[in-house]
Simulated scan of single mutants.
Amino acid sequence: MIDRRVTAPQTHDPDDVSSAITGSHAPGRSRDPRVGVAARPHPSRCLEHRAGATVVMYSSDISPRENDMASHSAISPHEAADRLAIRELIDAYAHCADRRDAKGQMALFTSDTRFLVFMDATAAEPTQELHGRVSLAPVFDNLNTYETTTHFNGQSTVSLDGDRATAESYCLAHHLSVDGDGQRSLMIASIRYLDEFVKQDGGWLFAERRLMVDWTETRPSVA
């Protein structure tokens, strides 16, 4: 198995302190209201047709985490290094997905990881739930059904608690398909990842990842 754990960069000068946004956290393994918890069911699901494209939109009643976005203070080099390592872990997942590196992608997770997929982010129960690193192989291999993919990561918020952390990150995932007649179609999924991380042997890994699909759009694609 390839060791894909992302380790925090070494820091030397304790006075080299940068200023950044810091997130609030609860002690132990408790989560904030949005991280690791499915959005509450909502009656609104809109199917819209526009110019040959099909857009599926889901609405959620979860409000932003005020504490994570309002607390600004100086942080230590150690915390800055951990935050950088976690962001690199999130980006490594997208890179491995688009490069079809299933083994590398699996190595980003703990051996007893949990992976949950919510194709409708407002659903109370996941569409798919997997336990253990080995169980992830079929999910990641499924990307081979597409001609190509591009996972474009956006904003993220991270809350640290010693050797554990939680995060919410956004991604626009583009999936290009080509049928037997050469017709191309593009499916775009707006995804939020609700993650739990653990630091093992100096490197950060996914302990749990919840993939929440907020909306999808499918349309013809011209080469």
Rank of each mutant, 00 (worst) to 15 (best):
residue 100 R to S: 10
residue 43 P to A: 04
residue 112 D to H: 12
residue 154 G to C: 01
residue 99 R to F: 07
residue 175 H to W: 05
residue 186 L to A: 07
residue 35 V to M: 04
residue 114 R to N: 08
residue 157 T to W: 04
residue 117 V to N: 01
residue 188 I to K: 00
residue 188 I to P: 00
residue 150 T to Y: 13
residue 65 R to K: 12
residue 59 S to G: 09
residue 197 F to V: 02
residue 164 R to H: 15
residue 155 Q to P: 02
residue 203 G to Q: 03
residue 39 A to E: 00
residue 143 L to N: 06
residue 137 A to I: 05
residue 145 T to C: 09
residue 137 A to C: 07
residue 20 A to S: 13
residue 16 D to Y: 11
residue 157 T to K: 02
residue 134 V to S: 15
residue 190 S to Q: 12
residue 46 C to S: 14
residue 218 T to R: 12
residue 41 P to E: 12
residue 181 D to A: 14
residue 77 P to L: 08
residue 36 G to E: 02
residue 127 T to V: 00
residue 217 E to D: 00
residue 185 S to A: 15
residue 57 M to T: 08
residue 1 M to N: 12
residue 105 Q to K: 03
residue 73 S to C: 12
residue 122 T to D: 11
residue 41 P to D: 09
residue 188 I to S: 10
residue 130 L to H: 10
residue 136 L to M: 06
residue 205 L to P: 01
residue 107 A to S: 10
residue 85 A to R: 03
residue 139 V to T: 08
residue 125 E to G: 06
residue 14 P to G: 04
residue 159 S to Y: 03
residue 22 T to V: 15
residue 111 S to P: 01
residue 73 S to K: 10
residue 59 S to A: 14
residue 212 M to A: 07
residue 44 S to F: 12
residue 138 P to Q: 03
residue 120 D to G: 02
residue 65 R to G: 13
residue 150 T to P: 03
residue 151 H to W: 08
residue 194 L to N: 03
residue 180 G to K: 07
residue 161 D to C: 15
residue 176 L to S: 05
residue 162 G to N: 08
residue 56 V to L: 14
residue 83 R to M: 07
residue 25 H to G: 09
residue 97 A to C: 14
residue 178 V to E: 11
residue 188 I to M: 12
residue 179 D to S: 00
residue 62 I to D: 08
residue 87 R to C: 06
residue 161 D to K: 00
residue 71 S to Q: 01
residue 210 R to T: 08
residue 115 F to A: 02
residue 80 A to M: 09
residue 212 M to W: 10
residue 27 P to D: 10
residue 89 L to Q: 06
residue 52 G to L: 00
residue 9 P to Q: 05
residue 104 G to S: 11
residue 70 A to I: 03
residue 11 T to V: 15
residue 14 P to C: 01
residue 79 E to S: 05
residue 45 R to F: 12
residue 38 A to F: 06
residue 34 R to F: 11
residue 187 M to S: 07
residue 35 V to I: 13
residue 98 D to V: 03
residue 152 F to D: 01
residue 53 A to M: 03
residue 10 Q to R: 11
residue 121 A to R: 02
residue 97 A to P: 03
residue 188 I to V: 14
residue 216 T to A: 11
residue 159 S to P: 00
residue 188 I to G: 01
residue 84 L to F: 14
residue 115 F to C: 06
residue 116 L to H: 09
residue 207 A to L: 06
residue 131 H to I: 11
residue 33 P to S: 10
residue 163 D to K: 01
residue 75 I to N: 01
